[in-house]
Design a protein around this nucleic acid. Structure first.
Lengths: 335, 335
DNA sequence: GTGAAAGCGCTAACAG
DNA sequence: CTGTTAGCGCTTTCAC
């Protein structure tokens, strides 16, 4: 009801005995005499004035809204990311509007929405086919950053944990632990992160003369990973170590191993990637490669903001080094 | 760059040989001759026209944006909620903008933001002090719904799982299992959900002549719950069953119990509330009261939408019954 | 430093 | 059914 008589800048101007423009300036750090500014702010407070974002947006052609396209939040690594991203964006005066996807079907309509919302920028943390969305956004003139899952061709700017370094660290760790028969459970084809982690892990083993590991997809789901784990356990030569390309899958793997009375860390080695909060839970104590989340978000956001101000067109993919966290799911290194 | 020459409705009108208003009507289900509509849409497609939400919002005074205020997403129950809420909102043509809070300090600035964004509606799933925010929103004329945590006084409309039914179900289950010395680990003072669950659990025990359980706060955090669990285990008369007011805390409790070699389900009973996805993970197999999430979200959103259309001022709190899910963290009922 | 005036792109009466 | 005419509330030259 109070809404019926929304208070506008004009109202404030009248009460303060100045012009609309003065009010506008006062709100945007323009030139305003100190005393006048005080009068304006006082009037604004008295009237409970809040500038209309719509009007401002129409006038400035900037919505101060950033879109975040992301796949289902069931990967335990994402909620924290969303959380902190929202916070970081808020710190720069931006708000996050959420676009969730469930696979490829949603892509077209989401694209429409994304483009239709006239966002100032878009962050693509989605797994599937995001590159396609990214180029369309770019064509529409809206700055994009890919996060975690990046453009393999490097055309679209993006930020990710250093998958090569991570995969190598895990591989090296596995080797020093003395594991010989390794396997990897990876995610979906469309995930650059999963692909790269798998590829570099394999390369690393090959470099050390070890045979190619058995590779099987966990499809980024609990059920898929459980199934993959079972298939691995049914193999003639059971693996003695499994590298899962995300913590979420590693944790599903860990639990499925329980069905075989096989104890991770003692009877088999399991490692993940990301260092999602649950990785360090006592029941899991998962060895993993920690993505430098803070740095990733900072880099992502600041680059996006820069791109929005029309500056640097921004380069390709930025890979940020993380850190190996050895926990109980892999056995102690051989001396 | 393409942005420099944003295509407007006028451009489309010109190309289609009609007036701006015709274009507007075509986009809003107004009266337009079929052939004219076709011509307009074709022109729009050719020009890659997308109506400006800012302009539309300015004109209609509706942003089609719904704010979701929520505390840190570390409670495993929330990500799914956010996910599905976003989806449900999208289905009705609304987008969700996220406001995350970390305790009371953030309240004031968030309130400013929330109000400043001229949202069409607000959903408050935040734990802390949300009632205050809610009334301010209402005063500002923007419809609000509280979710999960509701207004204890019933002034603000809200939707929650039926905490009484849930707490009673857990209590009854504990009793049929033969547990005698119970304890509850609850969350924070400001959480209506936690308070009600605790209160009704206690009442239920009292009704059956059982002594008041030991109550201790887990502060809605892993560390806090671990500490609470340890304190409980150090008690002279160790509890033989613990009711945690959220799954998140129950899971922390479960893990801490491991430090004492006490096996949940065998040596002690543990139950939670919510049925977050992880509750059913094999390692936890947590007995819990499942909140009817789908129904809650549907009710929340449809009531909010109704309120936004200025209809029913909406009543008080709606409590929706959930379902007890007995799993391995509590022992089999006595015959 | 401050005000006047002209839009930003769209919707919404109101005529025709 | 369609075009004309006003704004929606804010920013932004451009004079004063």
């Amino acid at each position: 009801m109070t809404n019926s008589k929304a208070v506008t800048g004009t109202d404030v101007a009248r009460l303060a005995g100045v012009s609309k423009s003065a009010v506008s300036r006062a709100y945007n750090g323009g030139y305003v005499a100190p005393d006048v500014r005080v009068r304006i702010m006082e009037a604004a407070r008295k009237l409970r004035f809040r500038p209309s974002p719509a009007a401002r947006a129409l006038s400035t052609r900037r919505s101060r809204l950033i879109g975040l396209a992301i796949t289902a939040l069931d990967n335990q690594f994402y909620p924290e990311m969303v959380d902190r991203l929202s916070e970081r964006l808020a710190a720069s005066g931006f708000r996050m509007v959420l676009f969730t996807t469930r696979g490829q079907a949603d892509l077209e309509p989401m694209l429409d929405e994304l483009l239709g919302y006239h966002l100032d920028g878009v962050i693509l943390a989605s797994t599937s086919f995001a590159t396609r969305v990214a180029s369309e956004c770019r064509d529409a003139g809206i700055p994009v950053m890919m996060l975690v899952n990046v453009d393999p061709t490097g055309q679209i700017p993006g930020v990710t944990a250093d998958n090569r370094l991570g995969a190598e660290a895990i591989a090296a760790h596995f080797m020093t632990c003395g594991y010989r028969t390794m396997a990897v459970i990876n995610g979906l084809q469309e995930s650059s992160a999963s692909n790269e982690r798998t590829r570099h892990f394999c390369n690393s083993l090959a470099d050390h003369g070890l045979p190619l590991p058995h590779i099987i997809s966990g499809e980024y789901s609990f059920a898929g990973t459980a199934e993959a784990t079972r298939r691995l356990m049914a193999l003639p030569g059971r693996p003695d170590a499994i590298f899962c390309t995300t913590d979420m899958m590693a944790i599903a793997c860990l639990q499925t191993l329980g069905e075989y009375g096989v104890v991770p860390g003692r009877d088999i080695g399991v490692a993940g990637f990301d260092d999602a909060p649950i990785a360090q839970w006592p029941v899991f104590s998962l060895t993993t490669y920690a993505a430098p989340l803070t740095l990733m978000l900072e880099t992502c956001v600041s680059n996006l903001i820069q791109a929005m101000s029309g500056n640097a067109p921004a380069a390709g993919t930025i890979s940020l080094p993380g850190e190996l966290r050895v926990r109980g799911s892999t056995r102690a290194p051989l001396v």
